[in-house]
Each structure stands twice: as structure tokens, then as C-alpha cells.
Design a protein around this nucleic acid. Structure first.
Lengths: 228, 228
DNA sequence: GGCATATTCAAGAAATTTCTCGAATACGGC
DNA sequence: GCCGTATTCGAGAAATTTCTTGAATATGCC
């Protein structure tokens, strides 16, 4: 390949342009607060002050971080009155986050350690959608969503029933004893399903945790259901 | 959920720890030079000075960038004598890069524009491995690797024959006219396969470009073949 | 219109990242 | 042992990112 200087310069300009543009996306992800905000908006659309309170940021600071995410298309904003509702963009972003977390955990054992010491020893439960499908194929098995009802309404796995941990705790939901239950929540880093399973088992019901949530489902190419 | 202040502090510490740790990975990717180095080492193991020259960096600077990538487990280094051979780590990283590029292109049309204006209008060819498998299932169809032979030796798609563009240009490779050819190179952003296809067609052969490379293959869960 | 509220903007200080340059280290060949 | 080379290290300047603060904008409600 007798590469002329002119051709080589052109190639460098092209590479600089493309790599600079691509690098903006990890640039937006390269901050713990923005990663947390991204996780929060992936649960359901949220306002700036809501997100700021949840993530322990000032409103102005949260707004700035959300704008960074927005500029890279990682979140979208919908304005209603004086409120700005930020939400996650879609499956491509979920896939990116799933891969990102996989790489991070593979590299840095301290992440898994922190999770273990925070959550305590916990039953991994069902960890693939294939296994979940198999479990649900059995007669008399139902899928329960242990997240707060608003999150269920925003998006849930196909065929799931809403059974918020709060409502289960308050005894507001009566489940048939004759069935088996597969319970999921936000994802591998959420404890709602764990606690719901404990609760159901205390009541003598047969329950298993599914350690995946809607984000993983969408990342895997699945469609979520809206409302009920 | 009556969240006590103590529990809430604990939760915040946990989240800070995990998100900080996860953010180190996009932090390592958030730089155009490191993205380029990552692409370069994913072609084949390379030394620091080789990478520095290719990416237009000083040796010291390239070394620093490679160390950043190395600390995050995105590349590994093998020392032979005074040389340090850096190479890509594995499939998880390839998947991350594929998703990263997908998100970046979805967000920023200027990336696709830059590619279009640099490469000129080009035949997309075959863009999925499923389609490639189908094409190759036909009788008398062979898979060709248009990359330099060292890259073929480092890793190639299963069943591929080495047919470096250079060698084809020099007329050093004689291909049976009776066959059909599917030609791939480094991936969607590489022109070797394009040019090889043009060359083969000029010779009256039937050739199609496969716009994916070993990195995409590994990302999709495939195994590459080593040596020949 | 006037007021309360949600969000964004703008400027500056502090922290982090990046690049350069010269020196240090380490290995192989003589 | 000495020299040449590949790589890494370290310090400092320059650029970028981050956070805070106070003000500005915009909307809804009275």
C-alpha cells in the first residue's frame, strides 16, 4: 500500500473526526452520578428534582448532568408545564449499559465484592430469560413484578402481574396458594424481588427470584408492555 | 419503605462505590486516541512504537494511554524482551465496542456522514452473519480474508482462506473461476474487502463483501480460528 | 398582573485529564 | 561490562470537567 502523504492526512482527519465523535458517548457515561441518573430514569420517567433528591445532587447539578446525557441521546426529555420528565431512550442504550456493567465486573472484582457485602448472601435465582421462560411454561406458574406500581405501569415484562413489595408487605395482595411464582424487579442490583420471595415463602407459597428486569429484557431484544 | 437515615447512608456509600468503579470503564474509553488504540490492538497484538506510529502519537503518550486501557482490563500486555505486545482482551470488550459504536452512530449522524464522505458510496454487501452463513451454504462458495496475512494468522473467521488485498493486487493469488467468493476484512470501517471485491470482479469473478470482521464475530459469540 | 415553583444558564474555583519532555529502567547483543 | 533500544516514569503546563452559587427563564395559579 504506497500511501501518499495526502491520503494519509485525509485518513488521519477522518479517524480523528470519527473517534472524537464516538468518544463523546463514553465521555457521557464516565461519571458515577450520570450512571446513577441513567439507572434511575431507566426505571421510569422522572423529573429533575426527583432525580436530584434520589441521587443526592443539587437540582442545578443534576440538570447539568442530564443535559450531558441528553446531548448524547442517552436520555430524552419531555416537558410538561414547568416539569421536565427525563426518560431512557431505548434498547440500544440498555444493551450498552448491560455490556458496560459486564466488562466492569469482569475487570474489577471489588464491584462484585461491594454488591455481595451490601446485599448479603442471596439466592441468584433465575438468571437467564431462557430459564425464566422454561419455568413459566410450567402449569400454574405466574410472573410477578415486585416494583412500585408506577414502574410497572411505565413498562413491565409481558404477562407479568403487578405485586409491589409494599403492597405485599401491607397484606394488600392475596395470591392463590395453588400457584408457583416467579418474581422480578428492576434487575440484578435491586432487592425488591429478593424480599418479595422471602415474604411469599414465609406465607407458604412457592416463589423464585428472576434476577433480571425490564432493562435487561429490552437489551435482549424483548418488547415491554405498557400500562396494565 | 421506612428508610432509616443509617440505612440510607449505607445505600449511598454502596452506590457511590459501585458507580465510581463502573464509571472507570467508560472513563478509559472516553478518549479518541484510546478508542483508536483499542481498534488497532483488536486487529492483532502490537508493540507500543507500532501503535504510536499508527495512531500518530508519541511513544510515551501511547504508552500512557495503553496503561489506562490496561488498568481497566480492556487490553492485556505480554512482554517479550524489551518489547511490550498489547492485545485486545476478549469478547466482552468487543461486544461493548460494538454497542458503543451503535449508540454513537444512532445519536450522531455526523459519524455516518463522515464515513460516507470518506469511503464514498459503497455497497453495504452482507451485513449479518446469518446472511453470510446462508450465502456460504451455497455450493462452490468460499470465504476470503482480505486483511494482511499477519492479521489472518492472529485470528480469522472459521473456514476462511487468507487472500490479502496486497497479494491479490500483486497477482500473487490465483483463485478458481468456478467459485463464488464472500470477502471480509477488519469490519465495517475497513476498505480492504471493498477493494478486493472490485479487483475480483474486474477479473470476472463473482465476489460479495461481508461488512463484518472477526471483532464482530467474537462479539456475537463466535470463536475465531488461530493460525492457518 | 403578581407570585411560587421547576428548570436552566452563567461564571468562577477546584479537581482531573492530557500532553510533552527529559530521565530512568530493563533487556539483548557485542 | 558497555551500548543501543523499547518502554515506562515523573513533573509541570495546558486543557477539560465538575461543582457551587446566584441569577435568569418559563410556566401555572391566584
Amino acid at each position: 500500500m504506497p500511501e501518499t502523504p495526502a491520503k494519509s492526512r485525509r485518513k488521519r482527519r477522518f479517524k480523528d473526526a470519527v473517534y472524537s465523535a464516538v468518544a463523546r458517548v463514553p465521555g457521557a457515561l464516565a461519571n458515577r452520578h450520570r450512571l446513577e441518573l441513567l439507572d434511575l430514569v431507566s426505571q421510569r420517567p422522572r423529573t429533575v428534582q426527583d432525580l436530584a433528591a434520589e441521587a443526592g445532587l443539587t437540582v442545578a447539578n443534576a440538570s447539568q448532568h442530564l443535559q450531558v446525557l441528553s446531548r448524547c441521546g442517552l436520555v430524552t426529555v419531555e416537558r410538561r408545564g414547568t416539569f421536565a420528565h427525563y426518560r431512557a431512550t431505548g434498547s440500544a442504550v440498555y444493551r450498552l449499559l448491560v455490556e458496560l456493567r459486564a466488562v466492569a465486573e469482569a475487570v474489577d472484582a471489588s464491584i462484585a465484592d461491594a454488591e455481595k457485602s451490601y446485599f448479603g448472601p442471596r439466592d441468584p435465582g433465575i438468571v437467564t430469560f431462557a430459564a425464566a421462560r422454561e419455568a413459566l411454561a410450567a402449569e400454574r406458574t405466574a410472573l410477578l413484578d415486585a416494583r412500585p406500581h408506577e414502574e410497572y405501569e411505565a413498562a413491565h415484562l409481558p404477562g407479568a402481574f403487578s405485586a409491589p413489595l409494599e403492597a405485599l408487605r401491607a397484606g394488600k395482595i392475596a395470591l392463590p396458594r395453588s400457584k408457583h411464582y416467579v418474581v422480578y424487579c428492576r434487575g440484578p442490583y435491586c432487592v425488591f424481588a429478593d424480599e418479595a420471595v422471602v415474604l411469599l415463602r414465609e406465607q407458604g407459597l412457592h416463589a423464585t427470584r428472576l434476577a433480571l428486569g425490564p432493562a435487561e429484557w429490552v437489551a435482549a431484544g424483548g418488547e415491554v408492555e405498557l400500562v396494565s
